[in-house]
Computed example of a mutant assay.
Amino acid sequence: MSFSCDQSLDGSFPPSPAEDRGSKRLSWSSLLQRLTELKGINQRVTADHLCSRSETGSEADMSLSESDSSFFLLEESLATEVAGTITQSLNDASDMLGCSKLILPDCLLHNISQELLHLAVCEPCGLRGALIDLCVDKGDQSSLCTVDQIAADATLVPTFHVTLVLRLESGGLWPKVQKLFKGSRSPQTSARHQDTLRLSTSFRAIKRKLYCSGELLIEECC
Rank of each mutant, 00 (worst) to 15 (best):
L90G: 05
P15C: 06
A93D: 00
L108Y: 03
L32F: 08
S100Q: 11
S2M: 12
S202R: 02
A154Y: 05
D92C: 01
R192Q: 11
N42Y: 11
D10F: 05
E75D: 11
H193R: 08
K179E: 15
F203Q: 02
S190P: 01
E37L: 10
I132N: 00
T155D: 11
C212S: 14
L35I: 04
D140G: 00
T56Q: 15
P17F: 01
E123C: 07
S143E: 04
E75Q: 15
Q178V: 00
S190N: 09
D20G: 07
S213D: 08
K101G: 04
C51N: 14
T163E: 09
Q194W: 00
G11S: 02
D153W: 07
D92A: 09
E55W: 12
A93W: 00
S142A: 03
S63H: 10
C221N: 10
S70G: 08
D6C: 06
E115W: 09
M1E: 09
H118I: 06
Q33G: 08
D68W: 11
E123F: 06
T189E: 15
L131F: 05
L144M: 03
K209T: 10
L127S: 13
R128K: 15
M96L: 07
F3R: 13
V147R: 02
F72C: 13
L38R: 07
L119R: 10
L26G: 04
A205V: 02
I218W: 04
G40Q: 10
N111V: 05
S70E: 14
G214L: 00
S69F: 13
S30D: 08
D148E: 03
F71W: 13
C51S: 15
A151Q: 08
G214P: 00
K101M: 05
R21E: 03
L74C: 13
S70N: 13
S54A: 12
K179D: 06
T80R: 14
G11L: 07
C125H: 14
Q178A: 03
C135T: 05
S186K: 04
L73G: 12
T155P: 03
H118W: 13
Q194L: 04
D148S: 07
Q149Y: 03
